[in-house]
Amino acid sequence: MSIERIEKRQGATLVAPALLWTLIFFVLPFLAMALMSLSHLEGRSVVSGPDLRNYAKIFTEASLLKGIAVSLEITVLVTVISVALAWPLAWIIATRVPVRWRRLALLLAVLPFWTSYVVRSYSWALVLGEKGVVMNALVGLGMLSEPVQIMATRSATVTGFVHFFVMLLTLTIYSNLVQLSPNYARAAEDLGASRWQVIRLVILPLTLPGVVTGAFLTFVLCIGDYITPQILGGNNELTLPQLIMLQLGRRGDYPMASALSLVLMLIVTLAYLACARWLKMERV
């Protein structure tokens, strides 16, 4: 046997366990789910198709269609607000905070990362509740005459999400900012740009690839999350993951849950293609 063939055989042997794991526990379940989405529920039993009834239902039934719209609205809103809040924070830490405090500032900015995800949403439920700290302060300061309902509304969901993703985006944008050579800003200043112009016309565009990558990550994680909308948003308007869990819990409707999951995956794939295309264009 030639050395090259031995090498290839050994390489393949090493890759095989991981590949098998991925095939058996990721690809196979996915195929099973895709197949399941083509059957439908009659009474309590699954009637195997293949048919497209679930998909037809998703795009005609108001409650399901609304779930998709709600998920998209919340996700886009969260992504935009998070980027808008995280960028200045990352910039201030990277340029305004003295070097020796930088690491500490960054550590503080992502500190709540280290509580558990479920507990973080719960904490916001505490803070935003009718008797919570925020309402107490606002009423106490006389800014409100009586507590306003925030919990179990979309505002609570968005607040919880933004809190998490500001931390995530601050990290990605910060790492992008510190890689930029200070010479770009210096050159622009020498050429007469004001400080705002430097940020707006030079620094911001240079960080866009990092921002887009972070925003995509935010989009994917946000639209697929069940915990935050369930704890903070309540049951007034349901997001796509909440609808998926509802199909399972209340009716045991695996076919519909599978079909909704595939719709969710389709949305994420479309977002990915949009970002990839944009990043590619940027590079050319």
Binding site: G224, S258, S261, L264
Partner: peptide, 8 residues
């Protein structure tokens, strides 16, 4: 998303 992996 984790939800889909879990469901599958």
């Amino acid at each position: 998303s984790y939800l889909i992996i879990g469901l599958g």
